[in-house]
Each structure stands twice: as C-alpha cells, then as structure tokens.
C-alpha cells in the first residue's frame, strides 16, 4: 500500500529540483544593475502614491469563509458519490437532506447579498 506513494515522492523531489534550479539559474545568469528609479515598484511610470500594505474590503473575507464551508461540504460528497450505487435510495435521501439544509444556507447567503459584487 505504501509503495503507491513512491512515485509521488520522487515526482515531488524532481519538481522541487526543477523549480529550485530554475530560480537559481535565473538569479545567477542574469545581469545585476541596481539604481533607485529602477527598483521602485511599477506604477505606470509614477512613484508609488499609496502603499499596498493597507486593509482590504471585508467581502473578500466572506468569500473565503464561504469557500471553506462549501469545500467541507464538497468533501462529504466524494465518498458518497463513489458509494452511491451501493447505498441506494437510503443514501440518496440522506444526501437530499444534506443538500436541502445547505441549499437553505446558500439561499440565505444569496438573499442577504453575500454573493453580490458591485
């Protein structure tokens, strides 16, 4: 059972090697010319007016919370889906309840404008 992960492990090491080697190569091979104007962050030729280190709108946070919740929901679906034919009607009713309860949640979020972007 364990040896099925051997390939993943070797592949991971190789991917790290490729990616790390690329970054190393580009930092070694490229020229280095530093001067003040060049090192400024790009803002279409102007100096930076506002620092990007500012607080952001909370609606991005709401998306993240909803994502976590729906991701957990989706994870429940996976084992259910592959067992569906074995569980039969019982499993279907079970999942119907689950979907309905979460559908209520989705509708609530929808109606409260949690999914709206202006």
């Amino acid at each position: 059972m364990l040896d099925q992960y051997t390939g993943v492990a070797i592949m991971l090491l190789m991917a790290i090697g490729i990616a790390g080697g690329m970054v190393l190569m580009t930092s070694i091979l490229g020229p280095k010319k530093r001067f003040a104007d060049k090192m400024e962050p790009f803002e279409c030729g102007e100096s930076q007016l506002v620092s990007p280190r500012q607080r952001f709108s909370v609606k991005f946070y709401l998306v993240a919370v909803l994502f976590v919740l729906f991701d957990i929901e989706a994870v429940f679906f996976f084992p259910w889906a592959i067992l569906f034919k074995r569980l039969g009607v019982f499993g279907f009713v079970e999942m119907l309840l689950f979907i309905l309860i979460l559908g209520v949640g989705l509708m609530y979020v929808w109606r409260r404008g949690g999914l709206d972007w202006e």
Binding site: V58, K59, Y61, L62, V65, L66, L69, I72, E73, F76, P79, W80, L83, L87, G91, E94, L97, F98, I101, L102, V104, G105, L106, Y108, V109, R112, G113, G114
Partner: peptide, 28 residues
C-alpha cells in the same frame, strides 16, 4: 460514515448552515 454515522453527518450539515449564517451576519 453513511451507514453507522448518519446522524452526525446530518448534524454536520446543520453546523455548516449555522456557520454560513454566522459569517454572513458578521460580514454584512
């Protein structure tokens, strides 16, 4: 999960619903 632990599974969905409502109430 879908035979012996049906009730916890359904309760989990209600928990997720509560979390969803909570998040929207807080954010909106």
């Amino acid at each position: 999960l879908f035979t012996d632990f049906v009730l916890p599974f359904e309760v989990a969905s209600i928990l997720l619903l509560a979390a969803m409502v909570g998040a929207v109430v807080l954010a909106k």
